[in-house]
Nucleic acid binder design. Structure first.
Lengths: 160, 160
DNA sequence: AGCGATTAAATCGCACACGATATTATCTCC
DNA sequence: GGAGATAATATCGTGTGCGATTTAATCGCT
């Protein structure tokens, strides 16, 4: 290593600030790119990517409260309320106060929203085909990310 | 498997639509959580997470055009222009037209922006400590995500 | 029963993110 | 050297995200 190189390393703390070394950027970048890859698949369904995620949750079990959707997706009511109103305006879900507890809002797919599920079935396979990863890599990546998310959620719920 | 279960599997295309099986959601979720983890570290520096990424790029080499920043980060001018104006308003970067080509805008850290780098050096290590992954897992994850991003960027630049 | 604490959504303000379009400068080619 | 093509930013409209606050309903406790 030349003197100039040593100096450079010293300056940037061993290259710790290099963009290509930041795990955060790798995640951020991959996530945006994959989301972008979904766009042309979801547009024909009339869904944005977060709206698609909400519908996935609703198709699994319904009705759900806003809070349950938020818990499943890691979003709060400030994000979900307007998003759900847009889905409602598009005729895909209904929103009504829970008679048993008027604080809660029950969200449920309409007939149109339920029917959309059939068309959505093609999406995961179409995506898998476009991702340049082997089956093993995919499974491995999914596992690591899921564990990471689970851990972070747990620590998020605690004070520090 | 009971008949009812077979029916269910048939209905949801082998569970392909389950949220927890979507690689996209694993990515989306992990990315949001990690970004959220940065917030308390970046707030004292007066930076949002995308602003931090821009500063990382500028600290590596400067000046840069808006286009170069966009290429490095995968963002377009519609996102960058307002973000850069906010950084400029905060006194962290300067923006001026390139005299050699008036279409381009050269972005460069101010003295204040350059000085911020010293404080930013603590961020990567503080983050690494908070991520519940082993060194190996981190390296592995980083490698997979980087390859994924590189591939997707390449295919993105092509027509289909 | 009733009052303060807690909980669930909604609202507000600000900051990304991006498709589409507009604006201005440079380039190309005759 | 001038007209049309191309390139680099900027602008506009819509849709997330989220911290902070507000509103309304329920709970807990006396």
């Amino acid at each position: 290593m030349t003197t100039a190189e040593k100096q450079k390393v010293k300056q940037d703390g061993g290259g710790l600030l290099r963009l290509d070394r930041q795990i955060c950027f790798a995640l951020y970048s991959a996530s945006s790119l994959v989301t972008r890859l979904y766009r042309p698949l979801l547009e024909p369904l009339g869904l944005t990517y977060p709206q698609y995620l909400v519908m996935l949750v609703l198709w699994e079990k319904t009705p759900r409260t806003v809070g349950e959707l938020g818990e499943a997706l890691g979003l709060d009511s400030a994000t979900l309320t307007p998003l759900l109103k847009r889905l409602e305006a598009g005729g895909l879900v209904s929103r009504k106060r829970d008679p048993a507890d008027e604080r809660r809002v029950l969200v449920e797919p309409t007939a149109k929203g339920a029917a959309l599920r059939e068309r959505a079935k093609a999406v995961p396979r179409a995506m898998a085909c476009q991702l340049p990863l082997s089956q093993d890599e995919l499974i491995n990546l999914h596992g690591t990310l899921s564990r990471l998310s689970r851990s972070l959620r747990k620590t998020e719920r605690q004070p520090g």
